[in-house]
């Protein structure tokens, strides 16, 4: 393109061509972030599961914080790097980024509240974090799927949400979330919510580029 006068027809052509070029689904390259959260959560859950079964020491539950710590630091760095690589930020990018920030702040607030309850003897309040992980996170993922029209996010989020609702019912019914059955369920939920859609998003982005 150069700096020259154009006809009305050429104007229309430029506008439509630029719109289609910017519609190259900027938001599609974010599979890596999902994969990071997915593999991190699955790895930490599997580690805690093995340690709980072999040592029977409830102190290993402190390892759950590794997810928030590693993911909370890596995620914004990866998102920023991705934005720099893409060179542009769409309105959808901003919407989804803000939505995940809200999820992150809710996670921090939930952890602080659970801590508070722990100090006044409510040790079971930590179960709420499972409901959080399996209700708020899938809800955000389904929303993102609807916004960017990505079925794998909607399907994965729905699996996670169903497991989350089941978990909430178990907590309400005072059914203990035993490591033997709950940990594999948690792993399945995160594999469906993060790992599968992450790989699908990345392969689509690769095909499109």
């Amino acid at each position: 393109m150069e700096e020259r006068k154009i006809t009305e027809a050429e104007s229309i052509e430029i506008i439509t061509s630029m719109i289609s070029r910017t519609k190259e689904r900027l938001e599609k390259g974010y599979g890596d972030i999902l994969l990071m959260w997915g593999y991190l959560t699955v790895a930490v859950t599997a580690l805690i599961w093995v340690l709980l079964v072999t040592t029977n020491n409830p102190a290993v539950n402190w390892l759950w914080f590794l997810i928030g710590l590693i993911g909370g630091i890596s995620s914004p760095i990866m998102a920023k790097r991705k934005r720099m690589e893409t060179g542009a930020m769409s309105y959808t990018d901003r919407l989804t980024s803000n939505m995940w920030s809200v999820v992150g702040f809710t996670a921090i607030a939930s952890a602080i509240l659970c801590f508070g309850f722990l100090f006044i003897g409510g040790k079971d309040s930590w179960s709420m974090m499972f409901s959080f992980a399996l209700i708020i996170v899938p809800m955000a993922e389904i929303m993102q799927g609807l916004v960017i029209k990505e079925k794998s996010l909607i399907a994965g989020g729905s699996v996670g949400l169903l497991i989350g609702l089941f978990t909430m019912c178990c907590i309400s019914a005072h059914i203990t979330l035993l490591a033997t059955w709950f940990m594999p369920l948690f792993i399945i939920a995160f594999a469906a919510m993060m790992i599968v859609p992450g790989h699908i998003l990345n392969s689509k982005a690769k095909r499109e580029s």
Partner: peptide, 21 residues
């Protein structure tokens, strides 16, 4: 009403921000 300026404006109407590259 100039090719390049219109192109730039059309892009910026569709994204929140874009870098030079």
């Amino acid at each position: 009403h100039s090719q390049l300026r219109l192109g730039v404006m059309s892009i910026l109407m569709n994204v929140e921000e874009a870098d030079f590259v």
